[in-house]
């Protein structure tokens, strides 16, 4: 019997024969494989890949955002530093101006005080001189009077003497006014 079957098979199958049963089997096997893979096979790989693609895309976008943020911060810092520098410059300039003005006023005040002191000293000197001259004159008068009294004791009522004293006095007056 097996021998007979083999003979039948050899008659039945050639590389070019089309076996209807095999078409059926191919569709069944392929269909089952397709269904199983559709349910259990491809989603695992494809979902993962899509998920990964999404994740990478997200990370790229995040990196781009972070880069933009960093650039923005850098710009801001640069601006802050620039403004701080300008401010410092301004403060320095203002301080210099204030110091200049202060020095100017101080100098002016010092000069003024010095002038005042000089003036006062001059006045005092003048007053002292006046006083000294006054005192001198009084001394002179006293001396003259003393001299006169001595002369009077010696020669009273001498007209010539009187004249002499008067002349002397006039001379003194002239010396003072000159």
């Amino acid at each position: 019997m097996p021998a007979l079957l083999l003979l039948v098979q050899e008659g039945e199958f050639t590389p070019f024969s089309i076996n209807t049963g095999l078409i059926f089997w191919t569709i069944v096997v392929f269909g089952v494989l397709l269904a199983l893979l559709w349910r259990f096979g491809w989603p695992a790989i494809l979902k993962t890949v899509e998920d990964r693609e999404r994740r990478i895309q997200q990370q790229l976008e995040e990196a781009e955002r972070a880069r933009a943020e960093a650039a923005r911060l850098l710009e801001e810092h640069k601006r802050t530093i620039a403004s701080a520098k300008a401010e410092a410059q301004e403060i320095l300039a203002r301080a210099k101006a204030v110091a200049d003005k202060e020095r100017e006023t101080l100098l002016a005040k010092a000069r003024q005080e010095y002038e005042q002191l000089l003036e006062r000293a001059r006045q005092e000197i003048g007053a002292e001189k006046e006083k000294a001259i006054e005192a001198l004159r009084r001394e002179a008068v006293d001396l003259s009077i003393a001299a006169a009294s001595k002369l009077l004791e010696a020669q009273l009522d001498s007209e010539t003497n009187r004249k002499l004293v008067m002349e002397y006095l006039a001379q003194l007056e002239a010396g003072r006014t000159s």
Binding site: W25, V29, V32, L33, L37, F40, G41, A44, I45, T48
Partner: peptide, 21 residues
Amino acid sequence: FMIIAACLVFLTIWYAGRQVE
């Protein structure tokens, strides 16, 4: 052999999918 191939394909994809996941 078709069934063997189908089983091997399924095992390959299923195992690879699990690993990748």
